[in-house]
Design a protein around this nucleic acid. Structure first.
Lengths: 315, 315
DNA sequence: ATTTCTGATGTTATCGATAACAAGTTTTAC
DNA sequence: GTAAAACTTGTTATCGATAACATCAGAAAT
């Protein structure tokens, strides 16, 4: 392992100068800087993260707190993790995954928190270390999310454009901001088009909504599209329609939300509102690192645009 | 932050003695040890992992290399990660997730590698740091896996016991050990019972196998059970049977493999061979840490028993 | 021309822990 | 009873990096 000292020797300067080239490049002559850069290159020098961590009193560890039960959860976490991990790695940070089983808020430099429910805001505010939430919230905490309202709008607009006459929104039965936002997007577009919103809510399980749709099948006329808050719900709806011998996508349409895995497994594959979860993960990490390096300053929100992915469940 | 020095002062011994109490407790008098333990308790002392890492020339980081494309993959990785992460945390290790996008074999203390394909064994052997594979292999590398052969056996035995007359194995079209083992388990039980094995192979996509089953529907008599190598395949098979108006579970049965997420999303929910992925993750981590602490010694294999989970797709 | 200031670089101490060695004490052995 | 061995504890140096202070040269100011 080449160390700072090796570089210093090769460049005929002191260790401190090398350190400065890395951390405070403006305090070093251009000339010396070039010398040092060359030495770093030729020796393939990489700073030792542990040594750095020690003197800066850092751990180089970020904890990801997953507050919801993972088994009941959409499988997008892996994408989130990939995104987070990539950015962290670039900055020589590592990750610790904290789930309900292993709940210890131990040593680290900051948290990314996901799966927040309303009651969690109680203890969240006690946290002293920097943190960033994944998922919008109305308490002013920094967060990253996709634009849920826009997601609702995009799906609804597309459904109208494709000529469906009856647009039913199927939401998740949770009092959470993401859900309200998606519904709000739907409602807004409906009103803009002089249409009456119609909303069903269900727990986020494919079989529950499947049963519901089957039982109320007579209420759904032809040319109906179900705009749902998750791919999981969309999957159940799709199954109910098939079981009831409704034709997809001609008589009945289904639009999902998330585009993580389930949309691919469905048959026909789901038209869905895609969220770039991996990208959002990266943004969470970036935001958190900025926060850590800038004295825990408020970063605000970071919202990215979802995209419509057209597949087999809409005409 | 209380440090070693604080403990030393409180216990009226030198720092070194405290360090010894932690790392070489046999080299310290019982009496002194108690004093130190008390001081540690009263000060709530936790060793600084970074300082330790520095002197031991460790990084306290484990990399998880995911070699297969994550989007096409069963969503069990999250469980794997949870298991790994929990054990790592207990030992003050952190994780870096390395996927195809971010492929850098950088600084760390060891690797857990998953999604190995045959060609990967080329470069794997060049690795100098300790590593453990998740998934069985025939090259003698340390690995953790579930007992795939037993998984094949369990499913097949159960199918026979439940009175299905035709047992068809649906495997994944991959020349990988886990697949061979599962098939071998099936074949063995079939032969033990004087039955003729019948095997179909397909890429691991629900729609492909769904089409296949539908197209060959006439070939499948009543009282057939499909024993499949993944829940993903099982899901497609189930859908084909429903589309063909076969009744589940009376006329046709389906048994999946893995029990991660998809078995829950299916309707009816899948009877499946459950692998405790999270537990296996923990074992990977444990094995790797042992390897790191014992000079990279060979650890052998670690195989855990899968379990049958009976749900709605078998009678 | 002398003093003061500024900017670039080097020296020293430090972060928290541990290995290697040193020193002091006790035990064992003949 | 004394020398050697065994054991216990303390001292010093070190891991790799950085902050704080020291130093020194040249620019600016008087």
């Amino acid at each position: 392992m080449t160390t700072l000292k090796d570089v210093a020797d090769q460049a005929h300067v002191s260790r401190m100068t090398v350190s400065r080239v890395i951390n405070h490049p403006d305090k070093v002559t251009e000339e010396v800087k070039q010398l040092v850069y060359q030495a770093m290159q030729s020796l393939d020098y990489h700073p030792n993260a542990m040594a750095r961590a020690l003197v800066n009193n850092r751990t180089q560890i970020i904890k990801l707190l997953v507050l919801e039960e993972m088994t009941t959860v959409e499988p997008y976490y892996m994408n989130l993790l990939t995104g987070i991990s990539k950015v962290l790695e670039e900055h020589q940070y590592a990750l610790q995954l904290v789930t309900e089983n292993s709940f210890e808020i131990g040593t680290c430099d900051g948290y990314i928190i996901t799966g927040m429910r309303d009651e969690d805001y109680q203890w969240i505010k006690e946290l002293t270390l920097p943190f960033v939430l994944f998922g919008e919230n109305r308490y002013g905490y920094d967060f990253v999310d996709s634009d849920n309202k826009m997601g609702g709008q995009i799906g609804t607009r597309y459904a109208i454009q494709r000529g469906y006459k009856h647009l039913i929104y199927v939401g998740i039965d949770l009092a959470e901001p993401f859900e309200y936002s998606r519904e709000a997007g739907y409602i807004q577009v409906m009103q803009e088009n002089g249409l009456e919103p119609q909303i069903i809510r269900s727990v986020n399980h494919s079989t529950q909504i499947q049963n519901y749709i089957s039982e109320h099948w007579s209420e759904f006329e032809e040319n109906t599209v179900f705009i749902s808050a998750s791919d999981r719900l969309a999957l159940g709806i799709e199954r109910a329609i098939i079981a009831q011998k409704g034709s997809i996508p001609e008589q009945y349409g289904v639009i999902g939300h998330d585009s993580v895995f389930l949309d691919q497994v469905a048959f026909p594959k789901l038209t869905t509102i895609k969220q770039e979860v991996s990208k959002m993960g990266g943004l969470c990490a970036k935001m958190l690192l900025d926060k850590i390096n800038n004295g825990n300053q408020l970063q605000g929100k970071c919202v990215i645009e979802p995209q419509l992915v057209v597949r087999g469940t809409t005409k």
